[in-house]
């Protein structure tokens, strides 16, 4: 019996390995093709969303308020706990680190400026966006993916119910509303953490910190942070829906699609953030 087995093993011939260079070229080509198909699909989705926005403007009764409110609750209210925890911890760390550096220059009080500006302008919006992308973005992609697997998307199509109006737009609107709110909450929490650490390391009183904040942070930063967050919200929901609608009806595609969606959403948020940083470099900063 073993002889037969070994004989078969011996006779088994592997495929001739392709030269590595050809394989790399091929992989590169496939990657490009994949990217092109993503961009094509995203453009199509964007076009569809724009068209349906026009339709909704003409027939406001088609807007599904119920879905918007459900997503608002899930991506906003339910995210308060985790964003608060992360916010406070980041605030403590940041404040502690900067306090140590500032102390050596005797510039203790500037911890308020550094924290205030960086939190309202960058840290708050980014932190909130990344957390919401991980929480709600993945959930949105998975929801659409499961609906593809169970043919619920097909069922909607044959009933003549638009995917964009019923599924995509409510998510985009909900995140555009909830992310600025979550951002405000997260920023407050980061500042609270920073305040605690500043008192512990520098002996800076809470009242002093709170009174110094409005003077140190021009109000334009607040508006910049809020509007940035609204844009991030729209981008996260759009990317999540794009990946969700591309999922093929099998469980492997569901897993890879959800992962890719979160990675792409966070990347897009950071890219858009960089664009904002360049565009508004002279807004809200004292020379």
């Amino acid at each position: 019996m073993f002889q037969a087995l070994f004989a078969r093993l011996g006779s088994k011939q592997g495929k001739p390995a392709k030269p590595p260079r050809a394989q790399n070229v091929r992989r590169f080509g496939q990657g490009l093709q994949n990217l092109a198909s993503h961009l094509l699909d995203a453009t199509a989705l964007l076009g569809q969303v724009t068209r349906d926005l026009g339709r909704l403007a003409r027939h406001p009764s088609l807007i599904s308020w119920k879905d918007i409110s459900a997503h608002l609750y899930r991506s906003g209210a339910q995210a308060l706990g985790i964003t608060a925890l992360v916010g406070v911890l980041v605030g403590i760390t940041l404040s502690y680190l900067t306090a140590k550096q500032l102390q050596s220059y005797g510039a203790d009080i500037y911890v308020i400026n550094i924290l205030g500006i960086s939190v309202w302008r960058e840290l708050g919006p980014l932190l909130a966006a990344i957390l919401v992308a991980g929480r709600s973005g993945s959930a949105m992609t998975a929801q659409l993916g499961v609906m593809r697997v169970t043919q619920e998307l097909d069922a909607l199509s044959v009933m003549g119910i638009s995917h964009t109006i019923r599924l995509v737009l409510p998510k985009m609107v909900a995140l555009a509303l909830s992310l600025p709110l979550v951002m405000t909450w997260t920023s407050c929490m980061v500042l609270a953490g920073g305040m605690i650490a500043a008192r512990a390391t520098l002996g800076l009183e809470y009242v002093q910190f709170l009174q110094g904040l409005p003077a140190a942070v021009p109000v334009a930063n607040l508006w910049l942070g809020l509007s940035k967050s609204a844009v991030f919200g729209v981008m996260i929901a759009f990317v999540a829906c794009h990946f969700g609608l591309r999922i093929k009806p099998n469980s492997e595609s569901l897993g890879t699609g959800t992962t890719a969606s979160v990675v792409a959403a966070i990347t897009v948020v950071i890219i858009v953030d960089a664009i904002f940083a360049v565009m508004f470099s002279d807004v809200g900063l004292k020379a």
């Binding site: 499961v146 169970t150 043919q151 619920e152 097909d154 069922a155 044959v158 009933m159 003549g160």
Partner: peptide
Amino acid sequence: DLAQVRHRWGVLFQQGALFS
């Protein structure tokens, strides 16, 4: 026209495709 057609047909999917 397409909306009209879609109101005139009904579809039973293999797994039911009920909205969960």
